[in-house]
């Protein structure tokens, strides 16, 4: 089976400054993988490089076996979607319209939705639990609701690989649990899900595997059990981890 995501000797960073290097990551369908590491270590940079928004400094990213940089933007957008940390608060867009934007890689030049697109949008909203919010203005939602809507938008994009940059960062405990449970459910449904987080405890509880970014620019990979045995978290965070 071809991995959804495979990186070969990948180095990521900004303006030539390398943050993370020698990355040989593999992510398969059905896996929920957490990306852990201290602030500023390059987690967001890595995720943006995996979508092609930032160029790789070295090495390459393969999506289902094809080189990311050689994919047509539309083809790329059919393979990988992302939920960002930044608050998108456009004026006067209702939730359904925002979720429907996820269909853009699949729609015609004017972005018209077919009945199949409508069905996928409905399904995405139902799955993320935001169907009740359909007519609400995105700008008037709570942070938790907004985050779920952005996840629904990514679901509507219908990509096998889903990346999320700190999806629980600004959420309260209840919404944090909701979002993480949804991610677990999506992975169980066959998607590959990679999310960055500060919440080590939740990551240990839910994720199939961990990617742990270390200060020397390397990324440790392994299961939760292996991470405990090898002390990978302690070496990354510098303190004892529950």
């Amino acid at each position: 089976m071809t991995a959804l995501l495979h990186t070969k000797d990948l180095a990521v960073g900004h303006r030539g400054r390398v943050l993370l290097r020698e990355l040989g990551l593999v992510l398969n369908a059905g896996e929920l993988v957490a990306l852990l590491g201290v602030n500023g270590i390059g987690k967001s940079t890595l995720l943006h490089t995996l979508t092609g928004a930032l160029p790789a400094l070295q090495g390459e990213v393969l999506l289902k076996g094809e080189t990311l940089s050689r994919l047509h933007p539309r083809e790329r957008a059919k393979r990988v979607s992302i939920v960002l940390t930044e608050r998108a608060s456009p004026a006067l867009l209702d939730v359904r319209t925002v979720v429907a934007l996820g269909r853009q890689p699949w729609t015609d030049a004017r972005g018209r939705l077919t009945s199949e697109d409508e069905r996928v949008v409905d399904q995405a909203m139902a799955q993320a639990g935001v169907a009740d919010l359909a007519g609400r203005d995105l700008a008037h939602l709570s942070d938790g609701e907004r985050q779920l809507v952005m996840v629904a938008r990514a679901l509507a994009q219908d990509t096998p690989l889903l990346l999320l940059d700190e999806p629980t960062a600004f959420l309260d405990v209840v919404n944090r649990a909701r979002v993480l449970a949804l991610l677990r459910q999506l992975a169980d449904g066959g998607r590959g899900v990679l999310f960055s987080t500060h919440d080590v405890a939740q990551a240990l509880r839910l994720a199939d595997r961990l990617l742990i970014a270390h200060a020397d620019g390397t990324v440790w990979q392994g299961t939760v059990v292996e991470a405990r045995e090898q002390g990978a978290l302690e070496s990354a965070f510098g303190t004892a981890v529950p």
């Binding site: 943006h48 092609g52 928004a53 979607s81 960002l84 930044e86 998108a88 456009p90 853009q104």
Partner: peptide, 19 residues
Amino acid sequence: VKPLNALLLGEAYAHSLGT
């Protein structure tokens, strides 16, 4: 109009949608 709508979510989201 289609890429303009994508841009409403910001440049990063627009990029991820294939713009």
